Computed example of a mutant assay.
Amino acid sequence: MLTRSLGAASFQQFWHYWNPIWGYYLSQYVMRPLRAWLPLTLAILLTFVVSGALHDVAVSIVKWRPVFFFTPWFFLMSVALISLQLNNVRYPRLPWLLRAAANIGVIGLCLAATYALGF
């Protein structure tokens, strides 16, 4: 899972390979229903928000206190994904290590922005 996802040729492709079982359920039960009523970019954004919220719920249950961190982080990652997709940012010809650095870099920048915003 890590080799294919980290070495993906775009940030969109990273999410295609990352956690395929979770991705399948998000696709079937969140993305497709939203896509029937909303533009693709908004459906993507809301799918990431739902995923982040479900992560927050899971962590809240484990910690026995409310957690609101993954929702804004996933929101920022969806904005990054949509922006990169709209600008056709892809890196298929880069070596695996640089593709992995690019994908981790986007995730890391979104994570840093989430912390900077106080979440």
Rank of each mutant, 00 (worst) to 15 (best):
S60C: 08
P33Q: 03
P33H: 05
G23P: 03
A36Y: 05
I107C: 14
L40M: 09
R35E: 09
A53F: 04
Q85D: 14
V79W: 02
G52P: 03
I44K: 02
Q85F: 12
H55V: 11
M1G: 09
L94F: 11
N87H: 13
Q28G: 01
F11D: 05
V30C: 04
V57C: 09
N103Q: 02
R32I: 12
W18I: 01
K63T: 14
T114P: 14
T71M: 09
Y17P: 00
Q28K: 14
L26P: 00
T47A: 03
F75A: 14
I61E: 12
L86N: 15
A8N: 03
T71H: 03
Q12T: 15
L26C: 00
A43L: 01
L109I: 09
L97A: 10
G108E: 11
S27W: 12
D56Q: 09
A113P: 15
Q12L: 13
S10H: 06
S51A: 10
F119S: 11
A116D: 11
S5H: 08
V49N: 00
W64E: 15
A9P: 01
T41V: 11
D56K: 04
A100Y: 01
R32H: 08
V57R: 04
L76Y: 11
W37V: 05
P72H: 06
G108R: 08
D56G: 10
Q28E: 13
T41F: 09
S83L: 13
G52N: 02
G7Y: 00
H55N: 05
V67A: 05
Q28F: 12
L45H: 03
P39K: 05
G52F: 07
F11E: 10
V106P: 01
F75R: 07
V106Q: 08
H55G: 06
W96N: 08
L111N: 06
F11S: 04
W73S: 06
A58Q: 06
V89I: 15
S60H: 04
L111V: 11
I44D: 02
P20N: 07
G105H: 04
L40C: 07
I61N: 09
Y17I: 00
L2R: 01
L117Q: 08
M31N: 14
T3Q: 12
A101K: 01
L86C: 14
